[in-house]
Design a binder for these strands. Structure first.
Lengths: 198, 198
DNA sequence: TCGTAAGCGGAGCAACGTTCCGCTTGTTTT
DNA sequence: AAAACAAGCGGAACGTTGCTCCGCTTACGA
């Protein structure tokens, strides 16, 4: 292909076309495999599905978390952007916080659902959580602070703690009708709520 | 009587003395190794520490969970027995439930502390939780039902769900001063509490 | 067209879980 | 006491995994 038409690519040091292509293939294959085998699927399986060698996968995504993060980046971004919007649209900051956490739970449940196929396990999981937390933490802080300021929520709990708590509650959430993380998250939020007198 | 004079052992089909000895050595070694390397320590390491072969460890404890359960059985038992006692000693069933869950959290934090050394999480973990849950569930049900009956707790949450929730909240609880599972558990319980009017 | 190096593939290594079977060693029987 | 039995033992061996490493391929600028 005679090509120097870099098209819309960013002003990077011109990556090779096949490298970009492989990265795409990898992401697509990973997303597919994750659904079937969970995020702990063997690296080989993903590489095979993408039709590339194992060296390639490790070059593009040095750790498993890197790959998973890349696959889920869109959803995380959407959730992060929903925060300020909900705060603006809703009268009660606590209500906004509640709705936003619902979104967050939706995302977590989906993600965990993918991971829990065979074993409800979770090896590279927490590292993963940690990353998403870093991205979403500022949003959570904004919402929580607003709710505290409005006197709707008792202080004493940090946004970080709340996020990790919600994240943990969503672990192992599928395949067991007796365990509905949403109910527990609701309890948590109710406990967080400041009721009239202090 | 076929060797029933063997100490206080139950009426088993007379196990061989060396087998019993090995089981003890295994338990001791496992407890020791768990502290250093977490519950995911290589089987080989435990076998080596105990001075036995790998076949032995698999014969006594077919799955990793079996081994871990054996190691922690005492603590679980103590926790289970504390339930009815607290209920009898305390006036408010909700207060008894709260105290008992504190005990449960103590246990979980300890256990997780052992497991979180290298990777904050790991594989055979949930199965483990499940076992402990099975043992402690009846106790939790007793406490929760009493609290509901006394009108101190809103119904709608099952004991199973509560236990799993608390268990999940305790994951990854050490090494991070920003995350204190007790605070979140407190929130959860507050949310569970029925406040005056229904 | 041609040279260069970025990129690729997968063989190879180490570590792990798990199985299997011949030998050891308590225990029972005579 | 000695012999016979089988419960129990050890660890070699196998399959699977994560990860590295290096010779070959090929895209791309000149």
């Amino acid at each position: 292909m005679p090509a120097s038409d870099k098209a819309g690519k960013a002003a990077g040091p011109s990556k090779r076309a096949d490298a970009v292509r492989n990265q795409q293939k990898l992401l697509a294959a990973a997303a597919e495999v994750f659904v079937v085998s969970g995020v702990d699927a063997p690296i080989r399986e993903i590489a095979a599905k993408a039709g590339v060698g194992m060296g390639t996968i490790y070059r593009h995504f040095p750790t498993r978390a890197d790959l998973v993060v890349a696959v889920f980046r869109h959803q995380v971004e959407a959730c992060a952007e929903a925060g300020p919007r909900l705060l603006a649209e809703t009268d009660s900051p606590f209500e906004a916080l509640w709705q936003w956490i619902d979104l967050f739970v939706d995302f977590l449940v989906t993600k965990h659902g993918l991971a829990n196929a065979p074993q409800p396990d979770s090896s590279g999981f927490v590292a993963l959580h940690t990353y998403f937390l870093d991205r979403l933490l500022p949003v959570a802080e904004q919402l929580l602070d607003a709710a505290i300021e409005a006197g709707e929520v008792r202080s004493g709990v940090q946004a970080y703690e709340l996020m990790r708590g919600v994240g943990n509650l969503c672990i192992g959430s599928d395949g067991d009708p007796r365990y509905d993380p949403r109910r527990l998250v609701a309890l948590l939020l109710r406990g967080l709520q400041e009721l009239g007198a202090s």
